[in-house]
Design a protein around this nucleic acid. Sequence first.
DNA 1: TAAAAGAACGAACGGTCGTGCTATTTTACC
DNA 2: GGTAAAATAGCACGACCGTTCGTTCTTTTA
Lengths: 205, 205
Amino acid sequence: MTTATLGKRAATRELILDHAYDMARRDGLEGLSIGALAQDVGMSKSGLFAHFGSREELQLAVLETGQLRFLQRVKWPALKLPRGLSRVRAIVTNWVAWANEYQSGCVLLTAASEYDGRQGALRDVVIKQQAGWRQEMCRAIGHAVENGELRDDTDASQLAFEIYALMLGLHHDAALFGFDEARRHTLAGFERLVTSYSPQRRAAP
Amino acid sequence: MTTATLGKRAATRELILDHAYDMARRDGLEGLSIGALAQDVGMSKSGLFAHFGSREELQLAVLETGQLRFLQRVKWPALKLPRGLSRVRAIVTNWVAWANEYQSGCVLLTAASEYDGRQGALRDVVIKQQAGWRQEMCRAIGHAVENGELRDDTDASQLAFEIYALMLGLHHDAALFGFDEARRHTLAGFERLVTSYSPQRRAAP
DNA sequence: TAAAAGAACGAACGGTCGTGCTATTTTACC
DNA sequence: GGTAAAATAGCACGACCGTTCGTTCTTTTA
């Protein structure tokens, strides 16, 4: 079925990317090796290579795969909720669930730390992806502000940064110290954020 | 002088580690290559290799170097301040300065993300380092609580997590989007943390 | 059914990897 | 200043790297 709808070439490409995605989660995009990947998929190096033309093209494809999976797991379900704080909450919830599923390594975060000091097409894509997602977060936060669910002097990019930072902490701590406590800390931090940016407790300084 | 006090062997080792540290900042510990490092230092592969005996030993040495530099840049100066909130503030300030100096890549953070999904001696050391530093943060926070500068129901490990998360955000954003805005967000987040955990605004819920 | 197109294969290329072994040079000491 | 010891260089090894090439097998098209 998949083969029928996609064509053989596209189906094989997806199969390769499935394996490559898992491999990149553990070893990073820089740790992707064509030989090891081919062995994992069960085909020859050259046959696999022909699907991408270069290692960099493969890495870029994996990066796209990673973003697609992140968006359809975290963003799209959240978009089904009404604009406002509930959607922001859904983003965080889905994101935590994402971090749980993909415990040892999110490709996007790994890539961000791999290419933050270099230059080239990969870094460019990483930055574009991260900037785009941050903007999405700002938009969702903006809706909550418009709804009056967050203080109307809320700096969306500031709050987005703080939420993103919590998620970085989640991935970091989950990988090193265990997921459960990391999630506890993350959610507690988020609740403190919501309280802190909440309009009703706008007590005089 | 350095040669006289250290001995030639130790001096050469330090020289190598200097270069290795810089290289690891950009390419990670996994990106460290003996050949490239030897060329960078200006000696032969085998001559350099003899100082460590294996690549892993070199990586471990770089990791130790990284921790030493971090501690003497961030922790030790903060210890000169009296226990309490001012010391916590100093840690954050020094840490931000550290992130500025070593903008493209902190070896410790890079290593944390490189080895969080594997196993072996390097991962063990990374975890031990991170756990130790987190404990230091908890201690500093505990002093501030004892001083009454933070609410006495403060969960030190929670606050330590939140501060650490801000620093992860700082490194992330500084590398991708520029240091200045990242610092602004980080310091604003920290101030919000201090306010939030501050005892005087213990208004009834 | 013959021809064209597509997909995967196996072998090989030039390089670099980490790692040993053996000289040769440099250092330190009597 | 000679001599033992330490430090470095030179060389080679086997493994793997990304990549290219020509071939083979399968599928589609005419």
